[in-house]
């Protein structure tokens, strides 16, 4: 019995690490531009299709498709922000909301046209391999995805902290006018932030492509999960996204065996409402944005 719960907990934590990467992307975009990316789940699904396409058409392994997803989504995010997003930087919230919703619809529609509504899954021998630790069996693909996601998040933290561009991003998130005054190209920095945010979502998508049946309509769930995580962890807090991702992964995993698999999100939303009411800045959030 204990093994069952331990197995479920570990599975939850592993998927939680990938969720954390998705949420980190959302958080970075919000942290720098104060914009909620309602198309985030669509980018994740885009990454999943890149993973699927790379495997189905070219037979590429996950490691290559992850790099591909990162590059494609970074480029997409950078161009989107440069061409359109920056014009909306000072618009009211509802206008930004409609912009991102329309982007989400365009992506979902495009993917549905390109791949059809049928689920696509990657079937390879690797997807059945497991690691055995004592009496625990850990799914290899899942573990690799979790470790890669954690690695990307760690790399991103280090980059934000130590590289010049990373510092510029942080400066822009704290004070745009001050940033401009000391010569930061805000347009460029915003585009970089969006690019990295999209790349995080794309990488996460490519990582979980072997675990899910990919359909264009998965996107809303991913967007909502990312929202829950960033609120629980704290909007604009990167460690918060990590913590939130792990918590939500764990909660969903345990709720699925304790109650009902389809009711797992109910608990997440309950947690979200409680957090919003009693600690709206999130577990690790510091200041109140907006």
């Amino acid at each position: 019995m204990i093994e069952l719960y331990a197995g479920v907990a570990i599975n939850g934590l592993m998927i939680g690490a990938v969720y954390a990467l998705v949420a980190t992307g959302l958080n970075l975009i919000f942290g720098v531009m104060r914009v909620v990316n309602f198309a985030h789940g669509e980018i994740v699904v885009g990454g999943m299709y890149i993973g699927y396409g790379a495997w189905a058409l070219l037979g590429l392994p996950t490691s290559v498709s992850v790099a591909l997803a990162a590059i494609v989504m970074f480029g997409f995010g950078y161009c989107f922000q440069r061409l359109i997003g920056n014009q909306f930087a000072n618009r009211p919230q509802h206008a930004q909301f409609v912009l991102y919703i329309s982007l989400a619809l365009i992506i979902t529609g495009g993917l549905a046209m390109a791949f059809g509504p049928d689920p696509r899954s990657i079937q390879s021998a690797a997807s059945f391999s497991v690691y055995k630790i004592g009496s625990l069996r850990v799914d290899a693909t899942r573990l690799q995805a979790a470790l890669s996601a954690a690695g990307v998040i760690l790399a991103l933290w280090l980059w934000l902290r130590f590289s010049l561009t990373g510092k510029a991003l942080q400066a822009a998130s704290q004070n745009i006018i001050g940033g401009r005054a000391i010569g930061i190209r805000i347009d460029h920095v915003f585009a970089i932030a969006t690019g990295i945010g999209f790349a995080c979502a794309g990488i996460a998508g490519a990582l979980i492509a072997p675990l899910y049946d990919t359909t264009p309509y998965l996107s809303a769930d991913f967007t909502l999960i990312a929202f829950i995580i960033v609120i629980v962890g704290g909007l604009a807090s990167l460690p918060g996204a990590m913590l939130g991702g792990l918590i939500i992964g764990l909660v969903e995993g345990l709720a699925a065996i304790l109650f009902d698999p389809s009711a797992k999100s109910l608990l997440s939303y309950g947690l979200l409402i409680a957090i919003l009411l009693f600690r709206p800045m999130g577990l690790l959030g510091k200041r109140r944005a907006l």
Binding site: S102, I106, A112, P216
Partner: peptide, 14 residues
């Protein structure tokens, strides 16, 4: 074409 309606709707909104 599956998805064309969503694509068109999104484009018009945009």
């Amino acid at each position: 074409l599956n998805g064309l309606n969503i694509l068109l709707y999104g484009t018009l909104l945009f």
